[in-house]
Design a protein around this nucleic acid. Sequence first.
DNA 1: ACTGTCGGGACACCCCGTTATT
DNA 2: AATAACGGGGTGTCCCGACAGT
Lengths: 203, 203, 203, 203
Amino acid sequence: MARQQERSEETRTRLLDSAQECFARRGYDATGVAEICRRAKLSKGAFYHHFSTKHDVFMALLYRWLGELDQQMLLMRAEGNTVPQQIQSMVSLARNVFAAAGDSRFALLLEFWGQAARDPATWQATIQPYYRYRDFFAVMVETGIAEGTLRPTDPATTARVILALAMGLFLQGLFDPAGANWEHVAQVGMETLLNGLRNHDSE
Amino acid sequence: MARQQERSEETRTRLLDSAQECFARRGYDATGVAEICRRAKLSKGAFYHHFSTKHDVFMALLYRWLGELDQQMLLMRAEGNTVPQQIQSMVSLARNVFAAAGDSRFALLLEFWGQAARDPATWQATIQPYYRYRDFFAVMVETGIAEGTLRPTDPATTARVILALAMGLFLQGLFDPAGANWEHVAQVGMETLLNGLRNHDSE
Amino acid sequence: MARQQERSEETRTRLLDSAQECFARRGYDATGVAEICRRAKLSKGAFYHHFSTKHDVFMALLYRWLGELDQQMLLMRAEGNTVPQQIQSMVSLARNVFAAAGDSRFALLLEFWGQAARDPATWQATIQPYYRYRDFFAVMVETGIAEGTLRPTDPATTARVILALAMGLFLQGLFDPAGANWEHVAQVGMETLLNGLRNHDSE
Amino acid sequence: MARQQERSEETRTRLLDSAQECFARRGYDATGVAEICRRAKLSKGAFYHHFSTKHDVFMALLYRWLGELDQQMLLMRAEGNTVPQQIQSMVSLARNVFAAAGDSRFALLLEFWGQAARDPATWQATIQPYYRYRDFFAVMVETGIAEGTLRPTDPATTARVILALAMGLFLQGLFDPAGANWEHVAQVGMETLLNGLRNHDSE
DNA sequence: ACTGTCGGGACACCCCGTTATT
DNA sequence: AATAACGGGGTGTCCCGACAGT
């Protein structure tokens, strides 16, 4: 039966979780395979049965994270009649994004970036979500211009500007979580930017 | 005499430069002291004569970087009569910032962040510049409100928004250097944001 | 039924062949059980079902080799009226022996010797054929002396001399296969030696 | 002063001796670097300061052995008026060769051969002495023919035959040291062979 | 009979830092 | 100030064998 497969799958997950915890806590290089195994309460034999390399677990972790991100993106379906309203509603959904900053995710993200800076393949995978978010906003801006709620600009450039604001807010949230009510700053900031983008002729 | 001191200083600099190169190229943990020495064409004895630990060079490098950043900040003295004009002039100075993205500086910065995520002392030192830029912008915003060119908002929040835009643009410049004319995007983006901030009553 | 037995036997043979190939190619120690299984396209479970240990396959291989050698020896039934003629006819049969030098047999033989140098039991088994060839030649020499074609010498010593020539030629054939027409050298060499052994009084 | 160099040299020699002992006793693969260091009473740091790899020590050992062999060959300067006499005098010098068979040299030689069977570079180095001995005998045979003490034959072939006898005797001495008085067998064997080679017309 | 999963352990290589030496 | 030799201590990888499961 699938008894064996289930067990195998669980072992693999245990190792992945343990590795994620370790990498986040102490960094990729400083984490030993032995440590990952100890935390997962498994032997090195089990580890190297499921992963061919320490780097391999790392990549598996990266892909798992990318998958989760994709799901997050799907959840962020904007609501509202006009594009500015939709963007604003998305900002209000960013709450959990900032909430996640506190936990170990940030350290892990840095670890991903650190590796990506060295390995081209990792780099490609890591910035993939960036491209997706960029294109996502570009489409929204185009729609906004078409519906007349945004004044005519280059959608590509404007999308990059919006994303810049979002990324900068996220980064500051990581740097200084308690330094401000980041949700509020995000709300205000995006509103201000949209103010500069809005089509005042339509009023 | 001063001859000895000069020589010693140069050796120290050679080691620092070599370490910077190595850390940027392969990361702090993956870089061996031997490798640093080899690139500097010096022996390990020389290394441990000038630095007590591998971590010691790293910190020296960090402080050197902070010093350079301070100088950069001084060079970015804004020009212009009104605050919006000053900010715009600063954006146009960001050219070399984006230019520097291509080289190994980014990898080194990531290395700083990576270490900072684990060591509180390093963390404080690393985000120090962030606080400075943040406060710097806060003062500008206050001035702008006082002079009537910016409409009255919370200066602290607005400063964070402006900085967010700047950081987001910088990050995108690192992620995708060839993905856009980032100077232009920065120009347009900041103008748009300032548009939303400007005091339209004053016109 | 016998169906199962056949299948089992074939699996065992597949493993033996694979092991032989691996040991010859990379040596006993450097060869992993996993590698043997991979080449045999079987799992490790199958391996440990048929053999209790890696060393176990090795011994099985050794015994298989000894058996093959025995059969070879039986095929080398000399023909001819006198002992010198018989020996010469045997030399002409050595063709396939030299031909086998090129393949992986030599490496395997070295592996046997290497293990034998450490393990007394393996040692005894490995040099068994040597004793047999030695005694075989001793009997021939005795016969030769009795029939008057060889001049009276100590048969034991003479047998060792003949075998020495044979072994030396074989070894050279392994060292430098293309360095000479070894069949011819063997022919000439043995003839020369027999010349020195022949009873010239009988003519 | 050369104090440092001396110490370094001695350390290196200690490691080489220890490695030789270990390789001979347990084989290359079964010997751990830790074991070599323990026997040499040195640390792994010292080991890897002098040798870059376990395989590196092995090669150093091989070259040391080749050097010793060269010196042995120089010592075997034959004496005597005629070539047959010279060869016979060389055989009597072979005493120490057979004596050396008992110690660990044989195991080490097998180790060399075992590695050589896998690595072409090692192979070339290992059989170098063979080529030298072969050519050495060829020259002697030519001289013998010229001086009329050996009957005209192909020197190349005859040299191989003589060397074959020597190698076969040596090998048997290794296989079965106590199985015969190998010096005597060698004496008798070579005399018999030379008997078959001698020019009976010159008498 | 045969498979996949796992445990425990070893081993080569390397690395950081110290010390004797110049 | 600078070098080379060295000590001690990991770390990633792999390997042999066991065993539950089919």
